[in-house]
Every structure is written in C-alpha cells, then in structure tokens.
C-alpha cells in the first residue's frame, strides 16, 4: 500500500487504483498530467522507501563470544547493506557489555568448551577484530542502535558509566518490541 497525500489528507492507495491512474494519465491527450503524475509517483516512492527502511532487530541474550560474534557480524553486514539495526541487550548479553567484562578474555559456550583454545588461537592468527570493535565500526557505518534491557540493568544494579559507551540507552521490553515490530528480520541470539 502507498500513502498518497490528497486534499483531505493522507489515504492509502491500493495497487489496483494506482494502475488505473497510470492508465488514465497515459492517454496522449493528457501529457501534462502524465508528467506531473510520474513526478509525484517518484516522490511517493522515494518517501515510501525512506519511511519503510529495512530493519534488523537482534535480542542479544548470550554473553559468550561464540554468540557475540554473530551479533556483531550480522549488525555490520546489515549496516553495510543499508539496513537500520537495533540491538536489545538482555541478561548475559548486557553483562558482556560491562567495561570490566570487556577487559577480560571472552567466555565461550560450555557445549564447545574444549574448542575454546583452538577458536581463540584461530581468531588471533587470522587477525579477527574483537566483536566490540566490529560493533563500533558498524555504528560508525550506519544507523545501529544498541539498547540495554531495563530489567537486567535494574536487577544487576548496573550504572551507565560501568557499561560500554556503545550503548545508546536503557529501554523496557515494551519499547523495544514497539521498535522491533517494524523490522523485517528479528533474531534472538
């Protein structure tokens, strides 16, 4: 559906109506109308694409590096492809953004515990940047917002200054869902 501004304000214009208007305007007797309609259609499509910008939402629950990397890489990829990104950090995901945690060697899921030294060594040898630096770069690159879950923030008695500067604010689940419902892709990691 496309929103069209008319004298009476905005109204939805279905595909069928739009098609009919193009046919009418395509009449050779109606060149001026046709040109002006095309111009206004371009405006509408531009406006439409600005309003409906593609968005990726991620709920980052896990605090282990094997899950924080996918969060960082997906966010970077989406920012590169021109999508908006919103990340909601909850529980261990938010805990990993504490400055004291960021200064420590990362943790890995217990399921893959025996792989941890191998994985860490590969990452070091191949010069893979820290996941927090990837997120920092993603934020410089595009519209990437990172929010702390208010409940986790309160329960763990966190303070803003103890958390990474990459965090844009503390939001409740209701506000995050309001933002996330506009997304094309929503992930829980």
């Amino acid at each position: 559906m496309i929103n069209v501004k008319t004298k009476s304000g905005f109204r939805n214009l279905g595909r069928k109506h739009l098609h009919a208007s193009i046919l009418m305007a395509a009449s050779p007797h109606n060149l001026v109308n046709r040109v002006s309609l095309l111009l206004s259609l371009t405006d509408i499509f531009n406006m439409h694409s600005q309003v409906k910008k593609e968005k990726l939402s991620i709920i980052a629950f896990s605090g282990t590096v094997d899950k924080l990397y996918p969060v960082a890489i997906l966010a970077s990829g989406a920012a590169a492809m021109g999508m908006d990104v919103e990340i909601f950090l909850t529980f261990w995901g938010l805990n990993a953004f504490r400055k004291d945690q960021l200064n420590q060697p990362g943790r890995i899921s217990r399921d893959f515990e025996e792989m941890a030294p191998v994985m860490m060594n590969i990452f070091k040898v191949k010069n893979v940047p820290h996941w927090i630096d990837m997120l920092k770069q993603a934020k410089e690159f595009g519209n990437v917002k990172i929010y702390a879950c208010a409940m986790t923030y309160d329960l763990f008695q966190m303070k803003k200054e103890e958390l990474s500067e990459l965090i844009d604010g503390v939001v409740g689940v209701g506000e995050f869902l309001e933002k996330a419902k506009e997304s094309n892709i929503t992930l829980f990691i």
């Binding site: 890489i73 970077s76 990829g77 590169a80 191949k126 010069n127 893979v128 770069q137 690159f141």
Partner: peptide, 14 residues
C-alpha cells in the same frame, strides 16, 4: 586481503 566478512564489503562501501 586478510579482512573477514563483512570487512571487504565495508571497505568497498567506504
């Protein structure tokens, strides 16, 4: 070269 996904793409976009 040596940069990992999505590094080269981001370098190109820049």
């Amino acid at each position: 070269r040596g940069s990992h996904c999505p590094g080269p793409l981001m370098e190109l976009i820049k």
